[in-house]
Design a protein around this nucleic acid. Structure first.
Lengths: 330, 330
DNA sequence: TTTCTTATGCTCAAGATTAGCATAATAGGC
DNA sequence: GCCTATTATGCTAATCTTGAGCATAAGAAA
């Protein structure tokens, strides 16, 4: 056993070649659709042109990981990023089509929020994120693709090698996909994707040569795969964002400076993939003091004109961490 | 601008040497104190013997990052880890005493929960985490060290180069440290440490040669520093755990199989660094169905004997994701 | 036996949530 | 100009949740 790396250790030992990719999930909401910035690789070797997230290798010149990411994305998309947060670092040896016997590729995933600007740069485009996860959009009711996935999920449960394993599998699909009486939980995006990968219902599992529980022909064609582990990173980003909008005022990073309450609601609905109760949504926003009136009135909404509001930046100081509470003694 | 890394790209390019350290915050609670597994480096070169978290380099043999971490920690501490989750990946070029002009050290931090077993392995020990963050323990009221820190914080505010910057700084210290009427928020552990580092009230800032706003003599001596960026990783772990206990039943990973409600409360209090309201805490635990009676009675508590309870594992299936809710339309 | 300490049951008021109904104000078709 | 569809917004009743506390039970220590 070698010594742990400490302050006193010598220069980093290159046990093997590690290459670090900084990968971004850049989100915007336009026309009530959640969009993600996509890069189409210019080089085609296999004939497959898989969508990719903007990314690039960590370089010596990057002072911090975040500044490196910013540099790559801003160069590729010619857009300025606002809010950024790190998501997760992926480094499974076998979760890629590209097997490197002497090295390893790490992907450090980031979530960034932006406002879609008119023209995307060459080779980039904004894509509806439900293109990659059609089962995640419940705004018009339960997505029909779930009916097509369910038989394969059930078959995988039945194929469990033991009773105990079958029970475990049943619980997993019930909780993840809201089956057998369980409630759909919009935040379990990554859990669902990982389960589909494991079962073999994600194209990437077959591409990577991972062991799967079903045939490649069972993979639904309407769900677009992505290059490398990018769909996994995107799932992580969506899950994080869906969780975060509930306790931090991050939605406003996606809104124009002034907007109506319905626009705000539609944006949250687009992200959560759910319809929300209008009156209660408004009360929630009002009582938290998240917005203030600009004084403007927006007509042409097809009904009574709406008041125009803007984000109250003061809330960041006033109520910096809403969220849950412990029963604190005072 | 080079091409983004994609599935089709060749073997990873070693732009420069990247070495990846897997670092663990291993937490246990014993005698109502939150403890963290610490490694004392055997090699001493500078005369300083700084505490370190268990860690080791990512190696080719590690199938996943998590299994690599598990291997390192279990070898160093001779203990099995239970719950594990990834925290964050740190890679700031200049946040270490060790400047590597041709490479970079990444630290991937993990949080692991354990039960303290009798004897720690040689070179390892369990340390109270408030040894590194004495301002975080409010169980016996406001920690006095805050009185000693406050003048330097105020001086840093006053030293802001502009009125705007001074206001920003004032808000930052108020929110982070619960000054000027703001409420103490137990989750802002990392924010507080980062602010102290920036101001120069953390030893590590002086060690790293980072620009600081105060003299090294202002650094409080009762707060133990750590090697490399380990105190930053520990702060991240504490913050994550303090947040997580509110919406996931992770505390039970730290409890013995059977325990009393007061023991459970003291454990949560140890982690949160706060005193909790007893009756309300019990009601919370009861109404969520988190525990069930074992039938046992524990005497010798210094008062009326307590019922013995155990964690109800079924809750993981029944209520898989409590947390906040959006006003969903049904 | 008294006193202290902890365990546990119960209550009350305030606040937040869920699920509605009702009314106001515009656009568009006739 | 009038009716209707559509959206905006105000208001309410029932239900849950939370904060704070009182009262009693049952051991341990003096």
């Amino acid at each position: 056993m070698s010594q742990p790396a400490t302050q006193e250790s010598p220069a980093p030992r290159a046990e093997f070649a590690v290459s670090v990719d900084l990968t971004a999930v850049v989100v915007a909401v336009t026309d009530d659709q959640p969009r993600v910035l996509i890069v189409r690789p210019a080089e085609v070797s296999t004939g497959e042109r898989l969508d990719a997230l903007p990314s690039g290798p960590l370089e010596l010149g990057h002072r911090t990981l975040e500044s490196g990411l910013r540099a790559w994305v801003e160069a590729q998309a010619r857009a300025k990023l606002g809010y950024i947060e790190q998501l997760y670092t992926f480094g499974d040896r076998d979760r890629t089509a590209l097997k490197v016997p002497t090295g390893r590729i790490l992907s450090i995933g980031y979530l960034a929020l932006a406002r879609e600007t008119g023209a995307a740069a060459a080779n980039t485009s904004w894509q509806d994120w439900y293109r990659y996860f059609p089962w995640e959009d419940w705004r018009r009711g339960r997505p029909s693709i779930l009916d097509r996935l369910e038989p394969t999920l059930r078959a995988w449960v039945a194929a469990g090698p033991s009773r105990v394993e079958q029970t475990t599998r049943k619980t997993r699909i019930s909780v993840a996909f809201g089956l057998d009486g369980a409630r759909w939980s919009e935040e379990r995006v990554l859990e669902r994707y990982e389960l589909l990968y494991e079962i073999g219902l994600a194209f990437e599992a077959h591409r990577d040569g991972s062991p799967t529980g079903c045939a490649q022909s069972d993979v639904p064609t309407e769900a677009q795969p992505m290059t490398a582990d990018h769909r996994r990173i995107l799932a992580t980003g969506i899950a994080r964002l869906r969780g975060k909008i509930k306790y931090r005022p991050v939605v406003f990073e996606l809104m124009p400076p002034a907007f109506t309450l319905l626009q705000l609601q539609r944006t949250v609905e687009a992200l959560a993939g759910l319809r929300l109760h209008k009156q209660n949504f408004r009360r929630l926003v009002a009582q938290q003091g998240l917005v203030e009136e600009t004084g403007g009135i927006v007509t042409g909404t097809g009904g009574r004109p709406a008041r125009e509001v803007r984000f109250r930046h003061e809330v960041l100081i006033e109520r910096p961490a809403p969220g849950l509470r412990l029963p604190i003694a005072r």
